[in-house]
Each structure stands twice: as C-alpha cells, then as structure tokens.
C-alpha cells in the first residue's frame, strides 16, 4: 500500500499539485487518470522520489518515504520497479544486459542464476529468445514488454507504470494492460499506472483517482465510472463525440 497525504508541488509560481490525499492499494491496479497537464506525471515522479513534494507525506506501507536517508532510500528502491513512457531501455546494451542491469548492480547471484532470472522474466512477458537483440531491433510493443521484464526482475513490491499504451496500437495496448494486471495479481504488488487511455480505465481500473487541475476530482473503481454523476469525470471519459453518442444511445434504451 502506498498512501499520499496532502501532497503539494510547485515549480516557481506554478502550483501543479494542490493537496492530494489518496491510498494506492496492494494487489490492485491503481490508476492515476486525468487530462494532459493535470499533474499525473508529477505525482508519479513524486511517488518514486524523482521529484520532492513541496509539502505532504508519502507512506510506503509503514515507511515514511521522506524520512529515509540515502541508504534507506536505496533499500526501498530495490523493492520498486518502473516502466517509463519511453521505456528508457539502454540503447548500447542487449535485451539481456538491459534486464540484467539491476541484478548486476545489486544482486550477489552467480551469472547463471542471473541469466536464469532474465530468461524467466522474458518468458513471463512472452519474449523468449530475444536475449541478444538490441532495443533498436525490436518493436515498440516488445520494448514495453522488455521494460516490464526489467521492472520485475528484482521482484518488486511496488510497480510504477507511466503511460504504458502511448504509441501502441489498440490490440498491443490491451496485451500490455493484461500483462500488467496479471503480474500485479500474481506477485501481489502495488501497481500504480499513470494513463489517459480509456480502454485501460475500463479494463484494469480497480482503484482509480482522477486528477483535475492538480486536485483529486474523483476516485472509485471501473464499475463506478459509468454511474458516476461527477461532471469532471464525465467530461473526461466521454470527451469524444463517438463515446457521447454511445452514452446517449445507452441512456435512451
């Protein structure tokens, strides 16, 4: 479980986050949704410690994130995996070396054990046999899956995913969503996904928080989305004319 309390973040005169309180639950796919510029990425970066909040508290289970020194932070980060929007795979390393990087840096396993772990992770994301390829030699969807494999290689307790479906076709996007959802259940981890993809919201949104202009505008599950009377949520979900037509048709019926 990750809990944020009264999170504020300002960049000079720009107040991006204005007092966010939310609890991201363990074993569920937690979604942060909202329009571009709502503060989703800033919140995610604050959660993983890439940005420092101007005010507020972050709790990783019973650990106060802000009270950690460098050693404590490093220890906690061993439990964190993250998939970046652009994948952030190291271009000069092969797929195997990319996934093995956290193991090489922190693990005392033998090379064979590390290779076995890499192969298991690749198998888990259905990408067996591409160990020696380089990131530039595989497709965008495969790069996402390699990113997920790298994120789970250290058996994390917390998984952060930034825009997992950006730049992917709808079918591949669904595959990635399902994969993240399955991994969350399988390893009972706290997964936080930052997205504005409606398919993801309706498919895997077990605990959703909607940000609007730096504030928490709504929270609930995918089953509560359609019944909600929240105007901000409705204008976000049914932004496209096509979805508005579908909704009106459903109401008429």
């Amino acid at each position: 479980m990750i809990k944020v309390q009264n999170i504020h973040k300002s960049f000079s005169d720009l107040h991006v986050l204005k007092g966010i309180d939310f609890e991201f639950e363990t074993g569920k796919t937690n979604l942060i949704i909202g329009k571009s510029g709502a503060g989703k990425t800033v919140l995610l970066k604050i959660l993983v410690g890439l940005l420092t909040p101007s005010e507020g508290e972050i709790w990783y289970d019973d650990v106060d994130f802000r009270s950690l020194n460098r050693t404590g932070l490093q220890k906690l980060r061993m439990d964190v995996g993250m998939l970046f929007q652009g994948n952030a795979l190291f271009d000069s390393l092969s797929i195997e070396e990319n996934i093995r990087f956290p193991l090489d840096m922190f693990s005392k396993q033998t090379l064979k054990e590390k290779k076995d772990r890499v192969n298991y992770c690749l198998e888990r994301v259905s990408l067996e046999g591409i160990n020696n390829k380089f990131p530039s030699e595989i497709s965008g969807g495969m790069q996402k899956r390699v990113g997920i494999a790298r994120a789970i290689v250290l058996n994390p307790k917390y998984l952060f995913v930034d825009e997992p479906n950006s730049g992917l076709d709808p079918k591949t996007a669904i595959t990635i969503d399902d994969l993240i959802s399955d991994i969350t259940k399988e390893f009972n981890i706290t997964t936080i996904i930052n997205t504005h993809d409606m398919n993801s919201v309706m498919e895997i949104g077990e605990n959703i928080c909607l940000l609007d202009k730096g504030r928490l505008a709504w929270h609930g599950t995918k089953n509560e989305v359609l019944d909600s009377a929240n105007d901000t949520l409705s204008s976000f979900i049914f932004a496209s004319p096509f979805l508005q037509k579908l909704r009106n048709a459903a109401i008429k019926k």
Partner: peptide, 14 residues
Amino acid sequence: QKEHIDAMEVMGVN
C-alpha cells in the same frame, strides 16, 4: 533526455 538517468535513479543507482 531519454529518461535513462531517471530509470537508474529509480533502481537505486547513484
């Protein structure tokens, strides 16, 4: 710019 440094930071690399 390609978030490689951020990725390493999240892993716990100095």
